[in-house]
């Protein structure tokens, strides 16, 4: 912490910055040209999002009936015990057991689960990105990190095309996690390996019409 000494490190650094910038007029503000696209036209955002997610080796399906699709996905994967944030209804889980994060699950408890089911805050079609903001249907960040399988439900109205459109919708005071495909590494001879520390399987259900 900065103490009460006459010249704290903070004062020192700020003084150095100011003397380094002696040539810069204090009242200047550098204009930022924002001639880049805020939005763009192009293929349907659902189509685009699907294409990008497949590119990242995520599994993705367009569905009508969320509850049926979630249940089907969990059965196919033989996922029996899942972390489920408070905003996700039990009815989605069908046969599987919903493990609620209340009281908060320890990392070891999360590690013992088969997966996690969440919604999302925003999805970005052009980059194949799902953004979580820890809302009631997404839960704490650890929930979507420790279990090896993440099933994420995206509503059509949550999909935007571009990164600027997404930032506009997001609240910086919330913890945000941007997810673009399953975890991956190219650290060994640039060979891409999907699945290192984060969930090795990301499955996305895009709800194209109301259940």
């Amino acid at each position: 912490m900065v103490g009460g000494e006459p010249m704290s490190s903070k004062d020192q650094i700020l003084a150095r910055v100011r003397s380094a910038l002696a040539d810069v007029p204090r009242d200047e503000d550098v204009p930022v040209p924002r001639d880049y696209d805020h939005s763009r036209s192009g293929p349907d955002v659902v189509e685009l999002l699907v294409d990008r997610l497949v590119d990242y080796k995520a599994e993705v399906r367009e569905v009508d009936d969320v509850a049926a699709a979630v249940a089907e996905a969990l059965t196919r994967r033989r996922a029996r015990r899942l972390a489920v944030p408070s905003g996700i209804p039990d009815s989605w889980l069908a046969e599987a057991e919903a493990v609620r994060d209340d009281p908060p699950l320890t990392p070891a408890e999360l590690n013992a689960l088969d997966g996690v089911v969440t919604g999302c805050a925003v999805a970005i079609a052009e980059t194949g990105t799902i953004v979580l903001d820890a809302g009631p249907d997404q839960g704490r960040r650890a929930l979507t990190l420790v279990p090896d399988y993440h099933l994420c439900v995206v509503r059509r109205d949550q999909i935007v095309r571009t990164v600027p459109e997404a930032l506009e919708r997001l609240d910086p005071s919330r913890p945000l996690t941007w997810i673009s495909g399953p975890s991956a590494t190219s650290d060994i001879e640039l060979d891409r390996v999907e699945g290192v520390h984060g969930p090795r399987t990301l499955e996305v259900l895009i709800v194209v019409s109301r259940p």
Binding site: V32, V163, L167, P175, I179, G181
Partner: peptide, 29 residues
């Protein structure tokens, strides 16, 4: 500003790993 990230979240992943977006980005306040 927060809005400035809309520029760098496009410039950095594409310049760096050559991906449209890197697998994970964390933002916290």
């Amino acid at each position: 500003t927060w809005q400035d990230l809309e520029v760098f979240m496009q410039l950095l992943p594409r310049s760096s790993t050559g991906e449209r977006m890197n697998p994970y980005t964390s933002m916290w306040t």
